[in-house]
Simulated assay, not measured.
Amino acid sequence: MALFATIVIVGLIVVAAAFIIFEPPAKTPAVQDFIAKLEKGDVALSDLAPGLNLLRVQAEAIGGPERSRVYKAALRILERHPESTEARVFALEVGRFYYSYDRKGGVPTVYDEAAIANDIAARSGK
């Protein structure tokens, strides 16, 4: 019993040390500003491609719930600009960014791609 307790305590110490050592990177102010603008709907179509690059560079610092909010904001932009190629590409790439979070190897599945295509079609009317 004492051996089991010792193993459990050592395991907890290792896990705690891993959290301290491998703390995820912090988001840069530029990414925080871009996400805030997206959620407010205060982003120009010309800012979508540079913003997507910011998201990709900071991918490790952006968790699942925040990726979900970014994807929903991208779909709202597409809904407001259904004929915009920039909005369509942005929604597609952010959808992949969102769905890749929980996927093995960081790659969306075929079913994820279908869900993204359905979301885009529903929001753009096509």
Rank of each mutant, 00 (worst) to 15 (best):
R88N: 09
P25C: 05
V8L: 14
A73R: 06
P50D: 00
H81P: 01
A2F: 08
I7C: 10
K126F: 03
T6F: 14
I62M: 11
G63W: 09
P82K: 07
A44C: 01
A17E: 13
A121S: 12
V10C: 10
A121D: 04
F97H: 04
T109G: 04
A59H: 05
F22D: 10
V15D: 13
L78T: 03
F90K: 09
F97I: 02
A26N: 13
R103T: 03
L45Y: 12
D42S: 13
V15M: 09
K40T: 03
D42L: 07
K40F: 02
K72R: 11
A73H: 02
A30I: 12
E23W: 15
V57Y: 06
V43Y: 04
L55G: 05
R56Y: 08
T109R: 06
F97S: 04
I62P: 02
T6E: 12
F97G: 05
Y101F: 12
A59W: 04
S100Q: 07
P50M: 00
A61I: 10
A17M: 14
P65N: 00
G63I: 02
Y101K: 13
E113R: 09
V14G: 11
V15Q: 07
E113W: 14
L12D: 02
N118R: 15
S46T: 14
D102F: 10
A2I: 13
P82I: 00
G11L: 12
A5N: 15
A61W: 05
K104E: 15
I20R: 07
T6P: 03
I9L: 11
F34L: 08
K104P: 13
V15S: 10
K37Q: 10
R88P: 00
I20H: 05
I120A: 01
R123S: 12
V15T: 10
P25G: 07
G105S: 08
L3P: 01
E39M: 06
A49W: 06
T109M: 15
V89G: 00
F4L: 12
R96H: 12
E23I: 10
L3C: 04
N118L: 06
A44Y: 05
A18Y: 02
N118T: 10
R123T: 14
P24K: 01
A117N: 11
L78A: 03
Y111L: 15
E39V: 02
A30P: 08
L52Q: 09
A73I: 10
D102G: 14
S124E: 04
A121T: 04
G11P: 03
K104Y: 11
S84D: 03
E86Q: 15
G11E: 06
K40R: 11
R67S: 06
K27E: 13
P65M: 00
I20N: 02
V110R: 12
E60I: 05
E86T: 09
G63H: 07
Y111I: 12
K126E: 05
I20D: 00
E93H: 05
E86H: 11
F19T: 06
P50F: 00
